[in-house]
């Protein structure tokens, strides 16, 4: 197994599997976030978040999730280092722009920005909710009048700077996924000449779904702010 994990193909497999796992998480995250659109003052959203926090299964998966991020990032750094070492003298004229997509060649760059965003994102939502207890669950909020997660999100996304960072990150994420998603299937060997078009289309579809899906939140909250609409309660 160590032989596999230290081989070039093994490392790639780890990238693919951790990446796909993170894709699954994104879907789940998007599903939860959609609750913000319900116009119920964030009730469903808060409950969904709350129940997840209290599910043993989700807590375990959460650990795996953090591991996946760490592994995905660490492996990416290692591979990039190796790949750079594989060409000690660089070309004076680089024509790869004519033979491949910019995003496929710059996964580390997009990935780094996304990673930076994840840290910010965690600091904004995960830390107050789960660590400092600044943000509380729905029942406690009812009891103590504390701030719910939904309120926290609404507040953050109403901030234009945060919204722009969020949007850019989501856009980069979409491109990152557009290459990474289909690439994972290629790496796992689940590809051939016939299916490669299907994976590429699925990849575009997934990237658009995640991009538009997550991108909708800052846009929605910003728009709401400008026209004076209460985004959580759907009231003018």
């Amino acid at each position: 197994m160590t032989k596999f994990l230290t081989s070039s193909l093994g490392k790639k497999t780890v990238m693919a599997l951790s990446g796909l796992f993170l894709c699954l998480f994104l879907l789940e995250h998007l599903y939860t976030n959609v609750h913000l659109f319900f116009g119920d003052g964030g009730k469903e959203f808060n409950e969904a978040s709350h129940s997840m926090v209290h599910s043993i299964l989700i807590r375990i998966i959460e650990v795996v999730l953090f591991l996946a991020i760490v592994v995905h990032v660490a492996q990416a750094l290692l591979l990039t280092k190796e790949n750079s070492d594989a060409r000690p003298v660089k070309y004076a004229v680089d024509g790869t722009s004519k033979t491949s997509d910019w995003f496929s060649r710059n996964m580390l760059l997009t990935g780094s920005i996304i990673f930076f965003f994840i840290v910010v994102h965690l600091y904004n939502f995960f830390v107050p909710y789960r660590v400092t207890g600044h943000v509380v669950g729905p029942e406690e909020a009812m009891a103590t009048g504390g701030e719910t997660l939904a309120m926290e999100v609404a507040e953050a996304l109403s901030n234009p700077i945060y919204a722009i960072i969020y949007l850019i990150s989501v856009l980069l994420l979409a491109f990152h996924l557009n290459h990474g998603f289909q690439s994972a299937f290629q790496t796992l060997g689940i590809n051939n000449q016939k299916y490669s078009k299907v994976w590429k289309m699925a990849s575009v579809g997934f990237a658009v779904l995640i991009g538009v899906g997550f991108g909708a939140f800052p846009i929605f909250f910003q728009l709401a702010k400008y026209i004076g609409f209460d985004a959580l309660n759907w009231n003018m």
Partner: peptide, 30 residues
């Protein structure tokens, strides 16, 4: 180096060898 599926090799290959071979090798290796 390691393959990152950018696809340049297939574009530049004078014999137009397909990327599908790489997928096959990944499969074989797994």
């Amino acid at each position: 180096g390691n393959c990152t599926n950018t696809g340049s090799c297939e574009v530049e290959c004078p014999k137009e060898i397909s990327l599908a071979n790489i997928a096959r090798m990944n499969r074989e290796y797994l």
